[in-house]
Design a protein around this nucleic acid. Structure first.
Lengths: 347, 347
DNA sequence: TGGAGAAGGGTAAACGATTAAGTAAACCTG
DNA sequence: CAGGTTTACTTAATCGTTTACCCTTCTCCA
């Protein structure tokens, strides 16, 4: 590997001169600079990142924390898309992305924080993890610039998909289609679930909907079996809902199966809606009406905020950035106004 | 950040002694070693990766090349699962994963190879890219340990999903279910497509199937619209196939839509099969019969081969590791033996 | 009892870059 | 033309580790 030393030897200047020339400092003569740069090019020089890091304490590398319990992580459409966007955003600015090692740690390292400091990450994006573990808390308090996705820590930048507005939009959309008996199968307890559920209740109240307790069900995220089972129970009610909202699109397909198996048709006999907006949901008939989260924007915001925090620590606000989703109108929610229309018009 | 120097000061020994103690060298006394290690622990010491890299030329970091044109990359189930498995494999051995920057390069860096050398990756996994670009060729010839996925370069380790055997198994399975009129909509041209297509022809010949030219169609991978259109054409043939094999599961849903839209039922009226074994395909009724590629094994093999190449360069064979897939039996392929059974039994 | 060898630890150079401080020559300027 | 300022470099220290080599001090045995 050719180093600055090699170039300096060839050009007959000192290593310092080479460094300055390549970094475009201005106390080097034009001609010398040109000569050095050309030689560097010809010799196939490229900087040794390790040496640069050691000296400057900057790695141009950001860590991404992605621990993947229960079907989450990389293989989850939502996170994968966010990561993809984050990757594109920071790579464009000359940063690389390294995963924070979530496996057994190397000897001498015992925590995420130590791993991150050891690697010298300029910043860390916490995308998908158990936010309640003490190790995460240690990491966010460790002094490294941090941005979290969909979770709020005090005094830490966060990018959040707007679950409150999202659920409100989704339920309102369904309401406007004439539905008055709406069920919500929510996911397992989490901050995200809380937001969506309370928004569901509040929006329902605002719209004048009365939601019987048996319309509110729980099934873990991305669990088609669970969603299937809950759907069956809902369908067996004396007065079943006209529309079911699922924890996520993946789960919605569980409902889809239960409904079709009973010879019912979507959306003619019953309507369903998902949450997330995963790709496949737009490609299977009936296409799923869902709240599509803006993963590209989420990833970009995480990246930009993190880079800003790194490059302008003084002037960057510690804030929560909220990214709006929007209802993707598939054809899984029927317009039943004037048909089985039981509610009151509100427009 | 506490360094070895700090520890050496506290313990009243030299930095070299600290280094040796921490690295468990054997020319340090037991008691001294214990004292140093304890002090390091108490002071919250962790090694500076950059310094270590600089000195040892080892980064314990492997690069993953993932360029993502047209719907590929991170957001593709197949690659995401492989990456996930690869990540787990190498992290367990104390390595980290960094993406090879596929964006605009930093000044002074003009190629993948330079980026990799600059970062000091111990090895690079080329998972998903345009294998025919000259930049990739430069990278694989650049002297860094390399493992490719699903692509063969001369004298480079490769891990391949067995597309030949896979297609053979799939077609044979379909044949055994009694199908004699089988169509294959293959993906856009690539090494993978070549393998599958020639295996399709060969297997068909072996089974004594005659495949009319109009049964062989092309639609790009993961293009539901294209698959939809080709399916429509197939259905309009005077003698339509009894089973259609799609380029991949995602495309199969395009066919799924076309078929259902015409009021036909899967598998009663026509059978379909996919390729890949993406998760969702196992969760939507009728569950898709497909050739499930063993992404976990693929990722593990890539990781293990790469680590072996890194740690035992002399004794590691340069070879191609073939990973078998297996037919996932959903219920999208009907058993039509003795029904519309037109072929000859071959058992 | 003297000398070899082992055990335990120190010295210092090196990895490849950056950068503060120094220096010599050229250039002004009044 | 003396003295100050620029310009264009060089010197040398430094980042945190590793490691080849050197130096004591003991131990042991002929």
């Amino acid at each position: 590997m050719v180093s600055m030393k090699d170039i300096s030897a060839v050009c007959g200047v000192s290593v310092a001169t080479v460094s300055k020339a390549l970094n475009n400092q201005n106390d080097i003569g034009q001609e010398t600079k040109r000569r050095i740069r050309q030689t560097a090019e010809e010799m196939g020089y490229f900087p040794n990142t390790a040496a640069k890091m050691l000296k400057t304490n900057r790695s141009y590398n950001i860590g991404v924390l992605f621990s993947h319990e229960d079907y989450s992580g990389l293989t989850h459409d939502y996170y994968a898309f966010v990561l993809d966007s984050l990757k594109n955003t920071v790579e464009e600015k000359g940063y690389d992305i390294t995963f924070v090692n979530t496996s057994i740690r190397r000897k001498g390292e015992t925590s995420y924080l130590e791993h991150c400091k050891s690697r010298g990450f300029d910043g860390v994006a916490i995308v998908c993890t158990d936010f309640y573990s003490p190790e995460i808390l240690q990491l966010v308090r460790g002094g490294i610039p941090i941005v979290t996705l969909d979770h709020l820590f005090n005094n830490v930048c966060a990018v959040m998909s707007n679950n409150v507005q999202g659920m409100q939009d989704l339920l309102t959309y369904i309401y406007e289609k004439g539905h008055r008996r709406v069920s919500y199968i929510h996911g397992a307890d989490s901050a995200v679930t809380q937001s969506r559920l309370s928004s569901f209740y509040r929006t329902a109240a605002q719209l004048g909907l009365t939601i019987p307790d048996e319309y509110i069900r729980m099934s873990p995220y991305r669990d088609t079996k669970g969603a299937y089972a809950e759907t069956v129970r809902l369908l067996e009610l004396r007065e079943p809902p006209t529309c079911i909202i699922y924890p996520d699109d993946f789960s919605a397909f569980g409902g889809y199966n239960a409904i079709q198996e009973r010879g019912m048709r979507i959306p003619d006999d019953i309507s369903i809606a998902g949450y997330d907006g995963i790709r496949i949901a737009r490609h299977i008939e009936p296409t799923l009406t869902t709240l599509r989260q803006d993963t590209e924007e989420l990833g970009r915001q995480v990246g930009e905020k993190l880079l800003s925090l790194i490059e302008h620590p003084k002037t960057t606000l510690v804030e929560t950035i909220v990214v709006e989703g929007h209802v993707f109108e598939g054809n899984s929610v029927a317009n039943i106004r004037g048909k089985n229309y039981v509610g009151t018009d509100f427009i």
